[in-house]
Design a protein around this nucleic acid. Sequence first.
DNA 1: TTCGGCATCCAAAGCGGTTTGAGTGCGATT
DNA 2: AATCGCACTCAAACCGCTTTGGATGCCGAA
Lengths: 342, 342
Amino acid sequence: MNLKELASRLGLSPTTVSRALNGYPEVNEATRERVMAAAKRHNYHPNTRAIRLATGRAMAVGHVIPIATRHEIVNPVFADFIAGAGETYSRNGYDMVLSVVPDDQEEATYRGLKSKGNVDGVIVHAPRMNDPRIALLHDIGLPFVVHGRATGAALPYSWLDVNNRRAFQRATEFLLDLGHTRIGLVNGLEFMDFAIRRRTGYVDALVARGIAPDPALMASDEMTEICGHRAARAMLALPQRPTAFLVASMISGMGVRRALEEVGLQMGRDISVIIHDDDLSYMKNGEDVPIFTATRSSVREAGRLAAEMLLDIIALPNPAPRQRLLEAELIIGQSNGPAPKV
Amino acid sequence: MNLKELASRLGLSPTTVSRALNGYPEVNEATRERVMAAAKRHNYHPNTRAIRLATGRAMAVGHVIPIATRHEIVNPVFADFIAGAGETYSRNGYDMVLSVVPDDQEEATYRGLKSKGNVDGVIVHAPRMNDPRIALLHDIGLPFVVHGRATGAALPYSWLDVNNRRAFQRATEFLLDLGHTRIGLVNGLEFMDFAIRRRTGYVDALVARGIAPDPALMASDEMTEICGHRAARAMLALPQRPTAFLVASMISGMGVRRALEEVGLQMGRDISVIIHDDDLSYMKNGEDVPIFTATRSSVREAGRLAAEMLLDIIALPNPAPRQRLLEAELIIGQSNGPAPKV
DNA sequence: TTCGGCATCCAAAGCGGTTTGAGTGCGATT
DNA sequence: AATCGCACTCAAACCGCTTTGGATGCCGAA
């Protein structure tokens, strides 16, 4: 069942039927209702491919996922972000298309997406410092929103980010207030923009209290259980070990916890731990009382909001870049306590 | 730059240019090379929307993700599966479109995907017993491959699955061989097909050795850290506690480990644990030596294979249903040992 | 009576490709 | 010399929708 057939059954022209269904004013209300009814009765759904060609819009948003020779973006955080963004797209009649490509084909993929007209815009994931994708997308004229920011970008661009610096600054201050002075930072990879900001927040807080950051207490690696464990073990083996940890993710945090248990330290009593909690749907930080004290910000909500921002931008003829900075909550769980008396 | 313009610049008809680029035989080799060169020079990429309309194929595969009022499918396993499938699609020039929809709209989404022509086929995730989606897709004539199986389906259908029954049977036998007789099963939700099969394997192995399965040693819940922890705690509190655990996932396993540490049991010495390891890229089971002894099967590879199967099916005019059963490896890590002497 | 305006509706021209059904020109066959 | 087949190429139809630029009829105003 297509437009033409539906029109002929109704004894109308395709023009009128199309307009009736799309809510144009120049069609008689009685006619419109007749058309609507017939469409429903015959289970008519306009062909998306034809609409896309006729309107010149893809009604789709792209997410490019480089599969890593180096580091994976396919991580749990990504999954939840996608889920959030996908909700927004569905609600607005957009498709979400994921391109999983070898990372040396990332640029070609973006160019292809634009020139072949597969999508109306893209979300940029996991920005790094001086991320080349921003200039590229600007260049080829593909609307985009960055999830995060890219320090060093020359041009203004749209982004949605969590205030990572502030979150880690507050967390550090909180630990300092509890008397901790040796705080281990188990950070993500520091070519990632968010990790840089988090370290900045941590360092700023220390410096503000006159504490010199100790390089031995700052680790930077992938946010896996293994890496969290390794980093914590290394710091715990120091002559002057930390009395608290600030950890980049829930999963790293589980590695840290394992390390603590191995050396016989009880989290929350002997040693404090604060993690960053992305509020993942399948990786909840406890039920009523959080297991970990945490800086929390829902990455799923970020996905929803970033997608909304992008759809807004796509809809506008000449959109100005938008920015939105979300604040993380500091939630108190069972993993912190005062620094032990020396 | 579009076909017509390219053609006129070359002094050729669109027909010939189209054929030259698509490798049809009825075009002079010299002409073809001239066309190819010009296409590259002018950076010509055929418009996907036009191709789709003209050919009647969507060149896209759908994945429908119901967002749960009840249980989330947006889980880490899903992310890796998607990544694997996405690789296959990219290699073959297909788009992957994800539809994230409220679960009461799942059926409508499948129907829409078909009638609006958005996709050429779909992958069905997380099948349950008597899963209604199979009949539905059969009905509306949308090609599909199920990741997993759906016990109780009336019609034959295509699927790709891991031999979950066998995997858990082998793991159980392995523990039995080590002298364990009280083995706790920390399973996934048992309306999920894979979870049912795993329990069957576990029960079969016990029964074959003349051991009556104890309901108190069989838990079924979501595969989260929290749930794993809770289940393990409950079993450890039994008068006759288990000497080994068989656990449905890496993440549940971490919860189990936490429970063990809480009660002062050392994994691998005091108590044995075997998990199922989906070989997730960001959740590796150790580096050289696995942390957990495990039944392992890469879900990412499953994604690749399922996608290949689906593309094959889509390409064929009248495809017969296909099946593929993958075997999980049993890999020995540091989390198992002989049962303690009574 | 005439004409402008309004409410409706439609024919036809896109959108940018693919594909069908015909040409052409040329060497080989009869 | 006429015919045939082959190798190329092209015009035009088509995919299924949107959208432009009229038509048409009817009513009230001049």
